[in-house]
Structures are given as structure tokens and as C-alpha cells.
Simulated scan of single mutants.
Amino acid sequence: MTVVRAAADIDEVAQLWKSLTAHHYEVGAAIGARVPPVGPEASWQGRRRQYTAWSAEPDWLLLVAERDDVVQGYAAARVTSSAGAWDFGDRVGRLETLAVAAEARGHGLGTALVAEVRAHWRRCGVRFAIVSVIGGNDSARRFYERLDAVEFTRTSFFPV
């Protein structure tokens, strides 16, 4: 059985972030060929700073998914203002992170987390949400497509 709850603190998700970083290094080999990775610990310290800043926002949400009393997934989400050429409403949800331990993938934890995040966004009056997927992470792209996601933008990087 999966239990989804609010995280006790940000550091509760550190190991899952580091695992996600390692997964990103694997699937994002084309990125790594041009830009060296910073490593899981440095990556976590940067993300931890972001989570700390975002946690001051009124609609911030950090959820964990447990199976057999072990945290095996988490979602970090927020609500931001919306602007652009389409009417998404005044605010959009942003799924900043969805991480599920490799051994727990395919068992509904990610779906359960996103369902709770969506419910939170609906309570906040949000109609649409945005998620970014690392280039090369085709399984994540397919996961979001199953949730009725449609590609909206592509983000690229280049040297200056």
C-alpha cells in the first residue's frame, strides 16, 4: 500500500534527489557530453536551496510516498503566475520534481503523488500545470503523456 504524506522536512528527500540526479546523468548523456555534471551532492545542495526558498511560498507542496514505511518517492510542487499567448488562467501549477526510487517505478507511486498534487492545485484554483523533462528521459515523457500532458515548449542550452 502506498501512503502519500507531507514531508517532515526537506532533507527527507535528499537521497531520492541524488538518485534522480544519477538517473538524469544516465539518460541525459547528450547533455553530459557538453557540460560536466556537478555530482549528486552538489546538485542536492543547490536543489535544497531552491526548496528552502520555495517553501516560503503560500502554495508550496512537498509530498513523499511511502511503501512499507520506506520513503520511495516524492513530489515538489508550487504555484506561479501565468502569462503568455494562451489562457492558462492567472496562475499555473509547476511540478518542480517527481522522483521515484528505481526499484519502486511502475507500481503507481508517481501516479499517486501526481494525483495528490493535482488535488492541491485544484484547491488553489489552478487549471493547468507545467512540468519539464530532462532531454533523453523518454520514460518520464511517456508517463506525463499518460496523464494527458501535451508538449508545450522545449528548452535548450548553448554556450555563450
Rank of each mutant, 00 (worst) to 15 (best):
A30V: 04
I31W: 11
G32Q: 06
G32A: 04
G32D: 02
A33Q: 06
R34Y: 03
P37I: 06
P37K: 04
V38Y: 00
V38N: 01
V38W: 00
G39M: 08
P40M: 02
P40A: 15
S43H: 15
G46R: 10
G46S: 01
R47H: 09
R48Y: 07
R49T: 11
Y51D: 03
Y51T: 06
Y51S: 05
W54K: 06
A56N: 13
A56P: 00
E57S: 12
P58V: 07
P58Y: 06
W60I: 00
W60P: 00
L61K: 06
L61T: 10
L61A: 12
L63R: 15
V64T: 13
A65T: 08
R67G: 04
D68E: 15
D68L: 04
D68M: 02
D69L: 10
V70W: 03
Q72K: 09
Q72N: 10
G73P: 04
Y74I: 00
Y74V: 01
R78F: 01
R78L: 14
V79C: 04
V79D: 07
S82E: 06
A83N: 11
A83F: 14
A83H: 12
G84C: 10
W86Q: 14
F88P: 00
F88W: 05
G89T: 12
D90P: 10
D90C: 01
R91L: 07
R91M: 05
V92S: 02
V92A: 02
G93D: 03
R94E: 15
R94F: 05
E96D: 15
T97D: 15
L98R: 09
V100F: 09
A101W: 03
A102C: 03
A104Q: 12
R105V: 01
R105L: 04
G106M: 08
G106I: 05
H107F: 09
G110S: 12
G110D: 11
G110L: 11
A112Y: 11
A112V: 04
A112S: 14
L113Y: 13
L113K: 12
V114Y: 14
A115G: 11
A115T: 12
A115V: 01
E116V: 06
E116P: 00
V117W: 07
A119R: 15
H120I: 01
R123D: 12
R123N: 10
C124T: 02
C124A: 15
C124E: 06
C124D: 01
G125K: 02
F128E: 07
A129L: 06
I130Y: 13
I130K: 02
G135Q: 12
G136P: 05
N137V: 00
S139T: 12
A140V: 04
R141Y: 12
R141E: 15
R141F: 10
F143V: 09
E145D: 09
E145K: 07
E145R: 13
E145P: 04
